[in-house]
Nucleic acid binder design. Structure first.
Length: 803
RNA sequence: GCGGAUGUGGCGGAACUGGCAGACGCACCAGACUCAAAAUCUGGCGGUAGUGAUAUCGUGUGGGUUCGAGUCCCACCAUCCGCACCA
């Protein structure tokens, strides 16, 4: 053994050794642990130190679980279909199939540098026909269950990506991928009925061990609200307008109604005199960008000339059209209560519509309103409802409406169905054939996968059609039902399709009979710990839950929720900005590994800050962990050959080390694990200097505890400590509670709440004895003072209050 | 606008149920070793006053509860993130 820590040699040696003899082998006698990283898109830029952060964390947990006696599934794969890969290919003028393969090779090489215990036999690649066969199969099952359907409607269109976007990808009116302003385009597209699962997706969030933040983002996105649907008869007509409201208690205050410009049946409502103005307004609204429509707080609108009747008081109220009402939420019509809704208040003020207050805040008097009041209170000006509490009435009114046949209790969601087709080349072909006689017919399962054909030009078009539409020999086929000439669907699936179920494939990735066998799924899944960034909170994580629930319903998987525990690591920035090639601030792990070694970088990735927080990268800190590993090396090297009998102090520190590292590791507060190692090592070094060495038990313990974090140096030191097996076979150390009991303890002494000294007391000392000792320590500080109160918190503090 | 998170030395950050604020590390300063440097080791390192023991202020701001508050309560400020006319 070298007295100097030769990391390059050590890391090379143990990497080769683990290749030959993996430390994590399947053994069904052991309990399972499935530890998963969000699989990467194989980018041309490769990995940076930000990627390492999550991968190191999950590998530390995986290795810890191995040490605890689990069989661990810790797989890795490639999310390789989709726009980023295709755009990279277009930019570099290489076919995406080739550039993707190249990038996978490069990123895989970089991943090897982390020395994670990935099981490469389980690797999945979403662009592999053996994989996307099942991505297509799932689509066919959804089609058969009526959950995949075609619809013509105005959709989010990204003019830069030249394809449609799901609502989740167009949040905020900009493209999630490229940031371009999203426009609307009326197209026929494939949709997935994720709304059918809205309630379950919402309900089951409760049982998940996820951060409240992500759960809230999902539940807000689903956006369930309770209320009533109320019918308003149109004056002088047999037609009616239904509205959805969450505040039926304010019905008496409804003084006008507003319809969305796209409201179905608007033409029949508008009076002839108003037709021209309304048509003009609707045309203007249709040309406004969705961003403008969202951000323009200034209300606009136009009167339709029509009136309808408020069903609770029989009053006639005017019907307007305004673009602040959304056509695709609720019924596209809103009953307006300006006194108790901010938007209605603005509108009423601007167009001089009446404002009738029907809720009086508790303990106030009725007076003209200067702004809308949306809170609770007593109902007034509402006939027989007067005197009721508003928020109670909110619940009761829908029932009353139902009894009187004026409306019904109902719920509404913000969640929309998932726009699932893309006008791009690099994706899974949607396995559907369009036949003039039979309609849309799924490709028979025994003909899956529908292979993505080779093309000359894979560049996106502006036509709203995929480049696949240009390949006549591929498009033209025969109908599987009637055998007549038919055409293939030319759209492809969105990049989220493959990632919505990949975690299921890892458990049985070579299976060509089913997406994964029930046995393999039962053995490994669901995922015990899922590690990844928070950016997919309402994208991938919502879609994957939806897929899993669907597959559960058709009996393909035995559980409803894919990810029991989710951990979102913070982003690593450089100079305050997200690392990107264009900003030129990408910190590559390659040079750091070369200079300090994999172990040092692994440990530093954890030490940079609390794992869930964003932090800015600074190379200089890595020196600290590098020095620590050098000191550790020297410590073991100096004491291994002449171990001493453990002293009481040494046993105490050693057991405290086990206890602290274990609890901090369980809590995933990895930064404090690293500082704990440093702190206790310093203490043990001091003890060692005093007593001329450390015990064999202590040295062994340190090395085992370090192993999940810095596996190479740990294996080497373990061997040097005389062991022949891998350190990962050693078992995780157990705390000996009896060694944590101390005879004496240091406590603080305060006088009137101010620190005035410390003292060593016996842990068994009674209150009187401790107080007496404290007074002795304070001595003449107490002279001339009268003690009015004595406080002793056992094991913590003495506080004497003086006058 | 609504919702959430965060705010502690020059810097990254510790502090479990309220109980010695600043652990651990970086940077910096001094000393040892060296012809010298690097590496390593030892010590120091929140502000102010004092040679010093010590005193005093100090966890975004202002109040409060408490013997005692970074931690609990109220109000506010700043930064970041999410949602954004969802009736």
């Amino acid at each position: 053994m070298n007295s100097h820590y030769e990391f390059t040699e050590i890391e090379k040696k143990w990497r080769a050794e683990w290749e030959k003899n993996p430390i994590n082998v399947e053994d069904d006698k052991k309990p399972k642990f499935y530890c998963l990283d969000m699989f990467p898109y194989p980018s041309g830029t490769g990995l940076h130190v930000g990627h390492w952060r999550g991968y190191v964390l999950s590998d530390v947990v995986s290795r810890y679980k191995v040490l605890q006696g689990f069989q661990v599934l810790h797989p890795m794969g490639w999310d390789a279909f989709g726009l980023p890969a295709e755009n990279f290919a277009i930019k570099n003028n290489i076919h995406p199939r080739i550039s993707t393969a190249d990038n996978i090779t490069n990123v895989k090489r970089q991943l090897h540098e982390i020395s994670a215990i990935y099981d490469w036999d389980k690797e999945v690649d979403t662009t592999d026909p053996g994989y996307y066969k099942w991505t297509q199969w799932i689509f066919v099952q959804m089609f058969k269950k009526g959950l995949a359907y075609e619809k013509q409607m105005p959709l989010n269109w990204c003019p830069s990506c030249k394809c449609v976007l799901a609502n989740e990808e167009a949040a905020g009116g900009t493209c999630e991928r490229c940031g371009a302003t999203v426009t609307k385009r009326n197209l026929r597209q494939w949709m997935l009925k994720i709304t059918a699962y809205a309630d379950r997706l919402l309900e089951d969030l409760q049982q998940l061990d996820w951060s409240e933040k992500v759960k809230k983002m999902q539940s807000d996105w689903i956006g369930k609200s309770y209320g009533a649907e109320v019918d308003f008869k149109i004056s002088g007509s047999d037609n009616k307008i239904s509205v959805f409201t969450t505040r039926p208690d304010t019905l008496h205050g409804c003084t006008f109604m507003v319809l969305a410009p796209e409201y179905k049946g608007l033409d029949e409502i508008v009076t002839p005199e108003c037709k021209e103005a309304v048509n003009q307004y609707c045309f203007d609204a249709s040309t406004k960008s969705s961003v403008d429509r969202m951000t323009d707080k200034e209300k606009t609108g136009v009167f339709t000339g029509a009136y309808c009747v408020n069903p609770v008081n029989g009053k006639e109220i005017p019907v307007w059209v305004a673009d602040y009402v959304l056509a695709d939420y609720g019924t596209g019509a809103v009953m307006c209560v300006p006194a108790h809704d901010e938007r209605d208040f603005d509108f009423a003020t601007k167009f001089n519509l009446p404002i009738v207050q029907v809720i009086l805040p508790e303990g106030t008097e009725e007076k003209p309103l200067t702004e809308a009041y949306a809170g609770d209170g007593v109902i007034i000006n509402s006939g027989e409802w007067n005197g009721m509490k508003a928020f109670e009435a909110k619940k009761k009114v829908p029932h009353m409406m139902e009894e009187q046949g004026l409306g019904k209790k109902t719920v509404n969601y913000k969640l929309r169905d998932w726009v699932f087709s893309r006008q791009r080349y690099w994706g899974e072909p949607i396995p559907i054939i369009h036949c003039d006689h039979c309609g849309a017919v799924p490709v028979p399962e025994d003909q899956l996968p529908v292979l993505l054909p080779e093309v000359e030009s894979y560049k996106p078009t502006d036509t709203g059609e995929s480049p696949l539409a240009q390949i006549d020999e591929w498009v033209n086929t025969t109908c599987p039902v009637c055998g007549r000439p038919a055409k293939r669907e030319t759209n492809t699936m969105p990049q989220w399709a493959g990632s919505s179920w990949y975690f299921l494939r890892y458990v049985d990735n070579h299976n060509d009979k089913e997406l994964a066998s029930m046995d393999a799924l039962k053995k490994w899944a669901p995922v015990d710990l899922y590690v990844g960034g928070i950016e997919h909170a309402v994208l991938h994580l919502l879609y994957a839950r939806f897929y899993t629930k669907f597959l559960y319903d058709i009996g393909a998987v035995p559980f409803e929720e894919p990810f029991q525990k989710l951990f979102n690591q913070g982003m690593i920035t450089k100079n305050g900005g997200k690392m990107s090639k264009s900003l030129g601030n990408v910190v590559s792990p390659d040079e750091l590994v070369e200079k300090y070694g994999c172990d040092s970088l692994r440990m530093y990735e954890l030490f940079v800050g609390p794992p869930e927080m964003d932090c800015d990268w600074d190379d200089s800190g890595i020196d600290g962990v590098f020095r620590f590993l050098n000191r550790t090396w020297k410590m073991i090297y100096s004491y291994k050959d002449a171990p001493v009998q453990a002293s009481k102090d040494e046993e105490f520190i050693c057991n405290k080390l086990i206890s602290d590292i274990t609890s901090r590791l369980e809590a995933l507060t990895m930064n404090t694990v690293v500082s704990g190692f440093m702190e206790y090592s310093n203490k043990l070094n001091d003890i060692a200097k005093k007593q001329g060495g450390l015990s064999k038990e202590t040295l062994d313990t340190i090395v085992i505890l370090l192993a999940p974090f810095v596996p190479h140096i740990s294996e080497e030191l373990w061997k040097e400590l005389g062991h022949t097996d891998s350190v990962f076979a050693a078992g995780w150390p157990q705390v000996d509670e009896s060694k944590l009991v101390q005879d004496t303890i240091e406590i603080a002494i305060q006088v009137s709440g101010k620190l005035r000294g410390t003292m060593e007391i016996s842990t068994s000392a009674a209150k009187d004895a401790v107080l007496a000792q404290a007074k002795e320590v304070l001595g003449n500080r107490l002279e001339g003072k009268e003690i009015v109160k004595e406080i002793y918190v056992p094991g913590r503090i003495v506080n004497l209050i003086v006058k």
